[in-house]
Design a protein around this nucleic acid. Structure first.
Lengths: 179, 179
DNA sequence: ATATCTGCAAAAAGTTTGCGTTATG
DNA sequence: CATAACGCAAACTTTTTGCAGATAT
């Protein structure tokens, strides 16, 4: 199994992990954040993984080294890492479930400002050819392209009245993003 | 504003909505499901939308016609529609937040069986050219390609012992998907 | 030394479930 | 008329927050 291991994105070696942890510590200190055992372990856990763990999984892993760590510290640290752009959040679990009545193959444009999700299609985004690149990892049934940016309405809003955050074309009715 | 409206995926007309609702009723009856006012309204709301509403938004919209409808009926109906493959769930809020320490531009292969998320890269998936197709909808800052399929481990597992669902390579530690 | 971070516990937000009643087929 | 679906309320999960005490700089 090891000999045919397709090296799409190889598991990071100990040196690579150490380098990432070091980069994290430097970045943290540069931002005036304290480097604690908990944070170092949480980041190291993430840096040494290739399977994009969730908070509970990181918690379980770090607990082996730091048995007294709490789940909320993991959450807090993960959010901090995202804010510091040292880690990204996958699967855009932005807010709530969103549903799509369009069953034809298509792709999505997600507005980073209002959360609006709009469909688009493009013949050039042929599923078979796009999927090829992921084949070493497994079968490919469907390929979805998510383009993140600012929707036209939000761009218009910002252009008109500089930094107003009142108009939110994406979501009808008064919905809140985070508190 | 209306004259330059790029028709990527146009808002469905009344006839198209009626067609979708009819298709839904037929499919529901075919599956032995009852067609209630609530279900028809919920589906119609979804079918007439282009912005991928969430449960709360559907609830608010349907409430105008059916003031006594409850939020859990909306949730139940939406899940039913997903199960019947009449609607899809966007933004894969399937489980929990997942984090990614890899800050290089890359894409994801998501296993439909175990949920494992693996990275892959491909020069052909050039961000600039891929984003072009979504330009009519707004700016494009980042493009992410999500390939859904079965990861190698799951394919192996199924091949070995037909339909076993015990081995879940994607998530370490005993995690539950939905109870 | 002190301001930040941690751990505990409780709250908040979103979604699901149990149960008695309503209404579809 | 039998049975599926509804509405209500309460449970459950995941994530966030307030506060007293520990710790990095």
């Amino acid at each position: 199994m090891r000999r045919t291991e397709q090296k799409t994105v190889p598991e990071p070696g100990a040196d690579e992990i150490a380098r990432r942890v070091e980069r994290f510590c430097a970045a943290a200190r540069r931002s005036g954040l304290r480097v604690t055992r908990q944070r170092r372990e949480i980041f190291a856990c993430l840096a040494s993984s290739v399977d994009h763990p969730d908070a509970e999984t990181v918690f379980a892993a770090v607990r082996k080294t730091l048995p007294d760590i709490s789940l909320d510290t993991v959450y807090r640290t993960l959010r901090m890492l995202c804010d510091e752009a040292l880690v990204t959040e996958v699967s855009s679990r932005s807010e709530t479930m969103r549903f799509d009545p369009n069953m034809e193959p298509h792709h999505h444009h997600v507005c980073i400002r209002c959360g609006r999700i709009a469909d688009f299609t493009d013949a050039r985004l042929d599923e078979r050819s796009l999927g090829q690149a992921a084949r070493p990892l497994g079968s490919v049934i469907a390929v979805q392209v998510v383009a993140k940016g600012e929707c036209r309405d939000c761009a218009k809003t910002v252009a008109t009245k500089s930094g107003s955050s009142s108009a939110r074309p994406g979501l009808p009715e008064g919905r809140k993003d985070r508190k």
